[in-house]
């Protein structure tokens, strides 16, 4: 009877040793895929905030550049008595503009910290470390008992521990997703609306800068009787080639929209590598444009 019990117990242990790794493999793959979705979304979020920061910085620079272009254009036909008041009023409004944009950028840093905190959980090596610790613990137990040492469970323990701790990790991320889903959705919709407006202002300011530059440095010198300045052809080329960058300033809203769609995909558990790559492309376009605008804006000054 005892032998039978012992045999059935040994059989159960052997069966567990076969079944648990199989269950573990399926569960671990599911956990890893879900963790990857969170990791990718958080990574894209951090990249988006960094790119949006660059766009916001350029929005401030472009607003000042456009206003300076307008003031220069209108100066000759503005009565001397009005000039200082006009300039000071514009300076005050531009200082306010820079402060508001700085406020939006500061908010972006909070959002970045949130995405980084999400990534810290998704990237945590706790399951791997716990598996090693469990293996070590099992090894220590084996030192106490020969029967434990011979147990077929020995190779299963680390994998199972990794799976359990991995599932804790996914649970934390899922809980966070459910708790903050409305706030994240609202934030990303707001970001999309914000960058649609910021992009519109930026595009207008860049267009105005280029227009005033074209009139002042290209058209007026050409129309005048005086000899053309030696940098005239170069100025003309710059004005014409810079037009493309101003037309692409709406990339910010597109990137925010793509991040919002990515979040919806994470919620629905269908955010895959292809969507992640496409999202990074949208954000990359936003960053590239901000980088292109930086020298263009300085040339306009």
């Amino acid at each position: 009877m005892r032998r039978l019990e012992s045999q059935s117990l040994a059989g159960a242990v052997r069966a567990m040793a076969v079944v648990v790794p199989l269950l573990g493999a399926g569960g671990a793959a599911g956990c890893a895929a879900r963790t990857t979705q969170f990791h990718d979304f958080a990574t894209a979020g951090v990249t988006y905030v960094k790119a949006s920061d660059a766009v916001l910085e350029e929005a401030g620079t472009a607003a000042i550049g456009a206003d300076s272009g307008i003031l220069i254009s209108a100066r000759a036909n503005t009565p001397v008595g009005e000039r200082t008041a006009r300039l000071l009023a514009a300076n005050k409004l531009l200082k306010d503009r820079v402060a508001i944009l700085r406020d939006i950028r500061r908010h972006g840093r909070v959002l970045q910290r949130y995405f980084e905190a999400l990534a810290s959980i998704a990237d945590s090596k706790a399951p791997e470390s716990a598996a090693k610790a469990a293996e070590s613990a099992f090894g220590a137990l084996a030192g106490l008992s020969a029967s434990i040492k011979a147990s077929p469970l020995a190779p299963v323990v680390p994998g199972l521990t990794k799976l359990i701790v991995g599932s804790f990790k996914v649970r934390i991320l899922e809980d966070e997703l459910h708790q903050r889903a409305d706030a994240v959705a609202a934030e990303l919709a707001l970001q999309e609306a914000a960058f649609a407006k910021v992009g519109e202002l930026l595009q207008t300011d860049l267009r105005v800068q280029l227009n005033t530059l074209e009139s002042r440095q290209v058209v007026q010198p050409f129309a005048a009787d005086a000899v053309l300045p030696k940098e005239w052809a170069q100025n003309r080329e710059q004005v014409i080639t810079a037009s493309a960058a101003s037309a692409a300033a709406s990339a910010g809203a597109r990137a925010a929209g793509a991040l919002r769609q990515a979040f919806e995909a994470v919620v629905a558990n269908r955010f895959d590598r292809a969507a992640f790559t496409s999202l990074l492309d949208d954000i990359g376009e936003m960053l590239t444009i901000a980088e292109q605008l930086a020298p263009a804006a300085r040339e306009g000054e």
Partner: peptide, 14 residues
């Protein structure tokens, strides 16, 4: 506020 709460909650979870 929601994001600050989220950061705190995730830090504790970590």
């Amino acid at each position: 506020k929601a994001f600050l709460d989220g950061i705190e909650s995730l830090d504790e979870a970590l």
